[in-house]
Design a protein around this nucleic acid. Structure first.
Length: 418
RNA sequence: GUGGACGUAGCUCAAUUGGUAGAGCUCUGGUUUGUGGUACCAGCGGCUGUGGGUUCAAGUCCCAUCGUUCACCCCA
């Protein structure tokens, strides 16, 4: 390789590197998601990021699959897609083993997804997403639970209920209006998509009109005049009973996707600067028919890491970095290295995360490094400690020191950390 | 795929009408040979994204290209 062709250090377009501080935030977000799901009795699952391309061709908005997924042919002439979402995979897995899975099933996963599109704020080519779903229940209890779970996770991330709102609507509402107005079933999906983009499209009414083939004003007027339904009001009261006070009915919420059949919701950041849709979900009762399976009612949501991180940043909720390393042994004399390694081994048996500084640098430099890495405790270790068996544990944040024997170190660290 | 903005040190950014490329932070060393953060001193660090063009002279103007970013399209 010639030296004038240096490899770039930038990551591939639209994907991110996670340095330790970034990974820490990522882990924190996932931890809150996972904990919230477990509190609600959800089981974790996962699958490969590789899927048959056909899985997305059938139900997902047609052309999008070809243009906005990473799809390629493998050496066995199979069409492979890097999964752009989890729901079809989940449906596939449940359809394959539906008789063995007790219903209603509560399932979640946290995985990475790929979408081939131009990166912009809140949307990049590889992202991570929590998916939480209940399968096998058509009950409003399931709808309420899914929304309450999303709410719980946001709250556990430190979000105030005023900093976000949950806008809810119902696809059946739209469906019944289509029905009443005699809009042909084959036009409804496209009409729904246009309605979803209502605020963004300039000649919205004209476009809608050309699709439904009749005066759009009637439909728009009906949607706007409908402030709620009996179902949505029941949902609201179920949510209130679960401590969710920021649900609002918004009949303009439809979600861009074809497979939703009932409740749909979208969580919005209410702050002015980041007033965007954070994530959403809804009920999809017919997806299983893809696999020739009888319908299984299902409701769920997906919550991505990119918008979640933006949200936390906007609201100053990002956690302060804490490294996994609890203690660094700073070796002053190389003659004490073997002793330091022995001490480290003993401490690890007591579950202390300990790193030995093998740099041979001056003590001051070693401490500076520990401080920079935000390691909370250090022990300087030279001939004196080696010979006496007494160690001085120093808390770098407070400067406080305590001298003790080897078997008391772990105990001291845990009491100080706690 | 369409449109705008921006590419200068590891990072954040300067550089007058075109006239020798600078600062802060970071990093390295020192003041301080077994104790960090603060302070002070010194140093490392650049083919100004890349390739062409205009000019006596280009970081600066023009063209192309690559990259970043914002918006649109789309949004699972």
């Amino acid at each position: 390789m010639s030296k004038d062709h240096k490899l770039p250090t930038d990551p591939y377009k639209g994907v991110r590197d996670f340095y330790p501080q970034d990974q820490f935030v990522q882990d924190y977000i996932f931890e809150q998601m996972r904990h919230g799901c477990e509190l609600f009795g959800y089981e974790e699952y996962n699958a490969s990021i590789l899927e048959h391309a056909e899985l997305y061709r059938s139900k997902t908005s047609e052309e999008i699959v070809n243009e906005q997924t990473y799809t390629f042919t493998d050496r066995g002439d199979r069409e492979v897609t890097l999964r752009p979402e989890m729901t079809p995979t989940l449906a596939r897995m449940v359809a394959a083993k539906s008789r063995e899975i007790p219903m209603p099933a509560r399932l979640f996963s946290i995985g990475n997804f790929f979408r081939y599109e131009r990166p912009q704020k809140g949307r990049i080519r590889e992202f991570w997403q929590l998916n939480a779903d209940i399968l096998g229940s058509a009950s409003i209890e399931a709808d309420a639970e899914i929304i309450a779970l999303a709410h719980t996770i946001l709250r556990s991330l430190g979000a105030d209920e005023r900093s976000f709102e949950i806008r809810v609507s119902d696809r059946r509402l739209l469906e019944s209006m289509f029905e009443e107005l005699g809009i042909p079933p084959e036009k409804r999906a496209e009409a729904t998509r246009i309605l979803d983009r209502r605020a963004k499209i300039e000649d919205f009414a004209e476009k809608l009109e050309s699709v439904i083939g009749q005066d759009a004003a009637v439909l728009i007027d009906r949607i706007d005049r409908t402030t709620s339904t009996a179902y949505l009001e029941e949902l609201r009261s179920l949510l209130l009973a679960r401590g969710v006070g920021n649900m609002i009915v918004d009949t303009k919420i439809t979600r861009g996707f074809d497979y939703y059949t009932g409740v749909v919701f979208e969580v919005f950041d209410t702050s002015g600067e980041n007033s965007r849709s954070l994530f959403g979900g809804g009920r999809y009762d017919n997806l299983m028919t893809l696999f020739g399976h009888e319908p299984i009612p299902a409701v769920g949501f997906g919550m991505g890491d990119v918008t979640t991180r933006d949200f936390l940043e906007t609201h100053n909720l990002l956690p302060a970095y804490v490294p996994g390393t609890e203690l660094m042994l700073c070796v002053i004399d190389q003659s004490a290295m073997a002793h330091a390694q022995k001490l480290a081994t003993d401490l690890r048996r007591e579950d202390v995360a300990v790193a030995v500084n093998i740099s041979s640098k001056k003590l001051g430099d070693q401490i500076r490094q520990a401080d920079k890495l935000k390691v909370p405790f250090i022990i300087a270790l030279g001939e004196k400690e080696r010979d006496s068996g007494q160690y001085t544990v120093k808390n770098l944040a407070t400067g406080h020191e305590l001298t003790t024997s080897a078997d008391r170190i772990a105990e001291h660290l845990f009491s100080s950390l706690g």
